[in-house]
Design a protein around this nucleic acid. Structure first.
Lengths: 339, 339
DNA sequence: CTGAAAGCGCTTACAG
DNA sequence: CTGAAAGCGCTTACAG
């Protein structure tokens, strides 16, 4: 049967011939034009089905002048592989894809890390209506490149750029930090610690840290900030920070760690030093990684609504704005065992 | 500057005019045709750059007759959200994207679950050269749909279909199961158990189970199979299976669990019952999930090479074959604490 | 409501 | 080596 033959593309002309109408009519019938008679639409529909016809989107989009797709690039570290990319980024990607699909948009995904191979001109090439950039903050050159893209080619939306200057959408860091402080205090903790950052290239971490300390202090509690060291591995950052805290000799009974991956490392070191969690010290993380269910003990964390995050990102890139509007994704406490 | 204006698309004619050549020459120069003089190529290149010109891929691909892209659909359960999808699927997706990019292909990703909204005719619509289907086996209707797509529209490659009849590429289940048995035996285990499946809709699990038992027995060791019950949550399946094993009163000192997520649940129940891992019983999983680093204790597992998996999938869909050739992705032991 | 024609922005024979 | 022209498969004014 012709329609089944993969080598011969069936066109709208073939359908027109079979249905006994003009090619324009085929196009209108298939695109759902309201001007077409129901009878002729049915003729066309069944002819199309019999021939196994589908409209060629390259042609349709060229003619229409839009693409019906969104590009999203996941920035990764140079030389990294699929399993190195952060689960958070994957989940966010999933949220973006779901949200795009809700709006009838497709999504073109790339993972970029090598600095000499960065590409972002999807809009100019007629491949997408806009670009969403997410991924690791640990590749500054890549983010610089995409900052440049955003300046000449709109629309672009970002999540989690290193300096935070690009984030059109991000977690509600302040709200989350407040919840963390409130929760720790409600558990009876009085000597609070934040494992986080200050004046760091990681604006998100800065925000969480500052909001936590300010809020806890305003509630009359002492607070100490341990800043994470600059190193590749988040787990290791957590171990080092916990060791520093332990070595300082300071007393503490409640810790807010600005991200789950760091919290995992911190908990290890704390427990190795004989501190029991949550008996001696309560720990709250941030990001709500599913892996937190598995940690020892399971990690209480602040979880952003990832589906909403995807939706806001898609919206940011899909609706026209004069200036970037920062949107905050609400975060909720996932109570597990650590606090 | 005109080239910066986002509302007016700059075309190859504009570049031609600026460079003082014909539009055909622009096209040739930009597509790297070897027939073009170096001098005129440079003229064209700089004109293009000055105008901020990029070729419109819709037009180029329409004319060329190919798309330069691959579609991949991640099947998910109906009603599930971004964070519900298996980390394994995300990592595999990452491997596919990386491999496609290596070959100069882009990838269009969708996540599909709702049975009334399945779509797979990317090739017919001129959107892709081929389709890769991955994701959860827990959505049989979706897999049936994509099986149908594969029958009328080539090329399609699959990973992890429920019945296993569709898998062009999958883990080396047999090799992995052998490694698991050998490792457990090397740890001194003699009373072996497999938490797995037999004649199940999950062919991958069947393969692993059978290969494990056969191999262990051939080495002179007793072996017992606990089959997992049909339920939504893998962790829970593990808990139930471990409980059944415990209740059976049988002695055991080494367990191979056919997937990590099930192993996590099994370990919980085992430990709650007072069995120490790995002292009383060693446990080996399958999949090599990064979350296994966090479990209590960290899970020893068989990890497939996910980048190679992506590469094989891309290759399967990219090269022409007469019949589906099953490819096995090598698996290696990640030794952690549980065994 | 339907058809004939133009045109979206490219690539690629075909001449020269 | 370069240019003029055709054509990829659609959508959409423009007539009727």
């Amino acid at each position: 049967m012709d329609g089944q033959n993969r080598n011969i593309r069936v066109t709208s002309f073939d359908v027109a011939e079979r249905a006994g109408v003009s090619q324009s009519t085929v196009s209108r019938a298939l695109s759902g034009s309201s001007v077409i008679t129901e009878a002729t639409r049915e003729k066309v529909l069944s002819a199309a089905q019999e021939l196994g016809y589908f409209v060629d989107e390259r042609a349709a989009r060229l003619r229409r002048g839009h693409t019906g797709t969104l590009a999203t690039v996941v920035v990764r570290k140079p030389g990294s592989t699929a399993k190195d990319v952060n689960p958070f980024a994957y989940t966010l990607l999933g949220g973006i894809i779901a949200a795009a699909s809700e709006r009838g948009l497709e999504v073109l995904v790339s993972m970029q890390g090598e600095v000499d191979k960065l590409f972002g001109h999807y809009v100019e090439r007629g491949q997408a209506e806009g670009l969403i950039v997410i991924g690791t903050t640990a590749n500054a050159p890549a983010w610089d490149f995409f900052r440049g893209i955003g300046e000449t080619s709109q629309p672009v939306a970002y999540w989690g750029s290193p300096r935070g200057d690009l984030d059109w959408v991000s977690s509600d860091n302040i709200g989350g930090a407040h919840i963390a402080a409130d929760h720790l205090i409600a558990q009876g903790c009085t000597k609070l610690v934040c494992i986080g950052a200050e004046n760091s290239p990681q604006r998100q971490f800065d925000e969480r840290s500052e909001a936590f300390c300010t809020h806890a202090q305003s509630l009359g509690h002492s607070t100490q900030l341990i800043t994470i060291k600059d190193m590749q591995n988040r787990r290791e950052q957590g171990r080092v920070a916990a060791k520093q805290l332990l070595d300082s000799g300071a007393e503490f009974d409640g810790i807010f760690v600005v991200c789950d991956a760091i919290a995992f490392g911190a908990m290890e070191t704390l427990q190795e030093a004989g501190r029991s969690i949550p008996d001696d010290v309560s720990v709250v993380g941030f990001d709500g990684l599913p892996a937190g269910e598995l940690s020892n003990p399971p990690l209480t964390s602040l979880e952003p609504d990832m589906d909403l995050a995807g939706r806001l990102l898609v919206e940011a890139v899909t609706e026209v704005h004069d200036s970037p509007s920062v949107r905050r994704v609400p975060v909720s406490l996932v109570k597990r065992v650590s606090a």
